[in-house]
Amino acid sequence: MILYFLCFVLFLVGLYGVITRRNVIKIVLGICIMEYSINLLLILIGYVHDGVAPIIVKGSAETNFVDPLPQAMVLTVIVIGLATTAMLLAIAIRVYRKHGTFDIREIKNLKG
C-alpha cells in the first residue's frame, strides 16, 4: 500500500506544478509527471508476487504471469503522451512568438 501512496505523492507533485508555476514549459512538465505517475500506478496494480512477464515460452509450465491488460493499455498511453506533449509544446512556442514571454499571466488576450 505504501507504493500506491508514493505514486499518489508523485501525482500530487505534478498537480502542484500545474497549479503554482507561471511558466508554460513548467506546466507542461507538470502534466507529464502526472501522466507518468498514473502509468506507474496501473502497472503496480497489475503486478503479482514472483510473476513473470506475459510471454509464453514453449516448453515451460509457468502459469504465474503478471496481468497483460494494464500493460497493453499503458503501452498506448505512452505513445499518445508523447504526441500530446508535442502538441502542448507547439502551442507554447506559438504563444511565445506572439507575446514574447512564457508567463501565463501576461497572456491576457483570451481573458473574458
Partner: peptide, 12 residues
C-alpha cells in the same frame, strides 16, 4: 508477437 516489443516500441 514472439518477444517483448511490437509496433509501438519498434516504431519509436
Amino acid at each position: 508477437h514472439l518477444s517483448p516489443g511490437g509496433g509501438f516500441a519498434g516504431g519509436t
